[in-house]
């Protein structure tokens, strides 16, 4: 446990020295602040930030995560020559990146919200929750890819393909399926399909905040049950965190067997 904390602490020092983090914070800060200054009310600002969160956070987390892992190669080899368990090292590296990334997001979005609108309810908290969850999920996926693939170029390429798949292609495939199988009852299928994409899960959590009036216009009984109360949100949050836990576990398994 102590070694884990020490590794996280070292990571923080290392990361905060880099320019990356400052830029990442500044982007969120300026964006949120700007949206408020251009006359948005808190609801509208959350809505505009939603697309940014769903688009940028997965991309940055997954690309930055793999690069970070590759760059830590020598540090890892050094530490592994010491009597340190692999689980502390792996979790230390993971938490050492996921924690500051999500903290930076919370500061970048939260602070402008605080001084423009005070503490808000509903959509604001969901926005923060989704942003943090996606950071954790995509950092976990980044580490998994980096552990599995030795070659840097291949690894980074894979992350971008994976991001493109989740962010854009997946929804295109769902839409294709929906129209190809138009004649069948599809509401169960769509709900199940959306569980297999963390970005969709985040999006649905937000939809439940912003577009509930339209969603209630849907006639399916399962949908209104899913959307009509907390049940839908609870399922989505649970699925998101499963999306985080499974890659971390798979990544650790590969990492513990890896021959350095």
């Amino acid at each position: 446990m102590m070694t884990l904390l020490k590794i996280i602490k070292y990571q923080l020092h290392d990361l905060l020295r880099g320019k990356w983090f400052i830029i990442y914070t500044a982007v969120f800060f300026l964006l949120t602040d700007g949206l408020f200054r251009f006359g948005g009310d808190p609801g509208q600002v959350s809505l505009s930030l939603m697309n940014v969160v769903l688009f940028i956070i997965p991309l940055v987390s997954i690309v930055f995560g793999t690069m970070f892992f590759y760059n830590s190669r020598e540090f890892m080899e050094l530490l592994l020559s010491q009597p340190i368990s692999r689980i502390s090292l792996y979790l230390g590296l993971y938490l050492g990146l996921a924690l500051p990334l999500s903290a930076v997001y919370l500061i970048g979005v939260g602070v402008p919200f605080m001084y423009h609108a005070g503490i808000q309810t509903g959509s604001y908290w969901i926005l923060l929750l989704v942003g943090v969850s996606l950071t954790w999920v995509f950092t976990a996926l980044a580490f998994l890819i980096a552990v599995m693939s030795e070659q840097r170029v291949k690894g980074v390429g894979m992350t971008i393909v994976l991001w493109l798949f989740f962010a854009i292609l997946y929804d295109g495939i769902i839409l294709f399926i929906l129209f190809a199988l138009e004649d069948y009852p599809l509401e169960k299928l769509t709900l199940i399909l959306s569980l297999f994409n963390p970005i969709d899960l985040g999006r649905i959590l937000m939809l439940l905040q912003f577009d509930i009036a339209a969603l209630m216009g849907y006639t399916g009984a399962l949908f209104s049950k899913f959307y009509g109360n907390m049940f839908g949100s609870a399922v989505a949050v649970f699925a998101l965190w499963t999306w985080c836990a499974i890659p971390v576990w798979l990544g650790y398994r590969a990492f513990s067997k890896k021959d350095f």
């Binding site: 962010a167 854009i168 929804d171 929906l178 129209f179 299928l189 769509t190 216009g217």
Partner: peptide, 12 residues
């Protein structure tokens, strides 16, 4: 196609 409502606000 009503179930497509699910994809609202997706980037695609």
């Amino acid at each position: 196609n009503e179930p497509a409502l699910m994809l609202m606000r997706s980037i695609f």
